[in-house]
Amino acid sequence: MPSVIEVTDLRKSYGGRAVVDGVSFTVEEGEIFGILGPNGAGKTTTVECVEGLRVPDGGRVRVLGHDPVADHAEVARVLGAQLQQSELQAKLTVREALELYSAFYPRPADWRPLAERLGLTGKLSTRFGKLSGGQQQRLFIALALVGGPRAVVLDELTTGLDPRARRDTWQLIEEVRASGVTVLLVTHFMEEAQRLCDRIAVIDRGRIAALDTPSGLIRRSAGATVISFSPSAPLDERELAALPALASVERKGERITLSGTDETVDAVITLLARHHITARQLRVVDATLDDAFLDLTAGPAEEEAA
């Protein structure tokens, strides 16, 4: 089965500056694929090329085999989109917006259950300009789905939502995927990416820094596992330093904090057992996607210096 979205060596520059610099990835049917990266990394430009809003300078983009620029109408029929910054006419009601956008598609979904699922039923007669930020966002999700798309692009979907609304939205995205729609999700929230995505492309300065499953990305980071404890008797510094796959050692008073991999954990346990030392308040914590992300992407300060 062909991929739903194929991006090959995508390039786009503005004023001589490469914003997207050779990005390639494929999104498979039924997947939630995340694009994660710092602000200004080229995430939005990449998905705007997928949506046909921008014409790439180089490379190839295909959505179910169609070129988003040359076959725009075909791509627009199968690909729903929620844009990062857009509005509707202020005096258009929710019902009118749903009816209008349904009329744009040959085989639209019934908008009533969609509005129901998004909690918009009580707001059908409310004008767009009177909706709260979260309600506007939910309406845009409904509009992205109203055409009965095979895939949707959701760009910074939960930005500006309160934590509760964000969790509700995550639930909704999982339901959308369960209904057979492929999801391309742009985000800068680690928790969101970790919770929802099957695979994540980390984009930094227009390039893909890593592409893996969330747990794969975490495993890649140098200090993927953090072990901390207070030993019941002093430990030899040299023995600690010789631990396999060790990334860092830190001492604070009695407490020792090590970072490394599963291998390091095994070795620490063996070492302690050999010396009959008890590890008090032992904590073994997996690194989060945050740690992996910080390892993979360079800080903005370095970019300024370059």
Binding site: H72, A76, S86, F140, G147
Partner: peptide, 17 residues
Amino acid sequence: GYRERGILRRMSVTPVR
């Protein structure tokens, strides 16, 4: 206003231009 507020952008990702 339609351009400034992204209303034209939103419509350009539908089959209707």
